[in-house]
């Protein structure tokens, strides 16, 4: 099995953001390259790790085209702009249209994307089967469990083909079994297509390392023990180079555990 990097799929360059006069993001730059493995369709999973309040959600909103940065650019494949609607975004508390059933929530996303009623219904049916939601098709969101709600929210975002899907804290509040399912789901969404990319935000170091091929650690600098405002990418871990990507049971390997400890100790100073 050989792996190499292809073209640039996402280019975040020198993004800077101030909110109410406070500097939040200073100089955020990273690129996502197509990961190529011969004989495998390999999408990309990027984890953004960082302490609470560092600006992860704000960064996702900028990439999604919901907020404008003060300066800097976000570009997609071949330098394309990414206006709101082109990038999938699974919000932290999984908002859904409460007056529509699961099926209708999915179908709405399809018709918005320009599908015919029939196409949209067929795609919704397929996704409900894949996401184990078929028996909840006629349920209103108020009657879903947290995990079901999350799966509907993810399915809704990929009703139309999406090359880029952002997820804010997809691993929070899950028991170990559910965490495993969601991690698998994230990888499935990514590996649906060679050019697919999932960018996810999390505090969970272990899950971030296990699920992604690249981990960016966001953080601020400290001077005399005090935090200097303005987060940037402090560290990048290429899990492919380290031989830790795309492997089952990777969490048991000593290299993995060592890396997890290394990052955890750095986390305290961010």
């Amino acid at each position: 099995m050989s792996a190499s990097d292809g073209e640039v799929l996402l280019d975040v360059s020198k993004v800077r953001l101030t909110l109410g006069g406070h500097l939040v993001l200073e100089n955020i730059s990273f690129q996502v390259h197509d990961r190529i493995r011969t004989g495998e369709i390999t999408g990309q999973v990027i984890a953004l790790l960082g302490p609470s309040g560092v600006g992860k959600t704000r960064l996702l909103r900028i990439i999604a085209g919901l907020d404008a940065a003060d300066s800097g650019t976000v570009r997609g494949q071949k330098g394309a702009a990414l206006p709101a609607g082109t990038v999938g975004y699974v919000f932290q508390d999984y908002p859904l249209l409460h007056h529509r059933t699961v099926k209708a929530n999915l179908e709405l996303a399809g018709t918005i994307a320009g599908m015919s009623k029939g196409e949209s219904a067929a795609r919704a049916k397929l996704l409900m089967e894949t996401f184990n939601l078929s028996d909840r098709a006629s349920f209103y969101p108020a009657f879903l469990s947290g995990g079901q709600r999350q799966r509907v929210a993810i399915a809704q975002q990929i009703m139309r083909p999406r090359q880029l899907v952002l997820m804010d804290e997809p691993f929070s509040g899950l028991d170990p079994a559910a965490l495993g399912h969601v991690m698998k789901l994230v990888q499935e969404v990514a590996h649906l297509d060679e050019l697919n990319t999932v960018v996810l935000v999390t505090h969970d170091i272990r899950a971030a390392l296990a699920v992604s091929d690249t981990v960016h650690m966001l953080g601020r600098f400290r001077k005399d023990g005090k935090i200097v405002p303005g987060a940037c990418v402090r560290e990048t871990y290429d899990m492919v180079d380290r031989g830790l990507a795309w492997r089952t049971g990777v969490q048991e390997l000593p290299e993995f555990v060592a890396l997890e400890h290394e990052i955890a100790s750095k986390f305290h100073d961010l």
Binding site: A84, G85, Y89, F91, D93, P95, I112, Q157
Partner: peptide
């Protein structure tokens, strides 16, 4: 109406 409901629809491309 929470802002996220508008954002949610914008992200879907509405």
């Amino acid at each position: 109406i929470p802002r996220v409901q508008f954002d949610h629809m914008r992200v879907l491309g509405a």
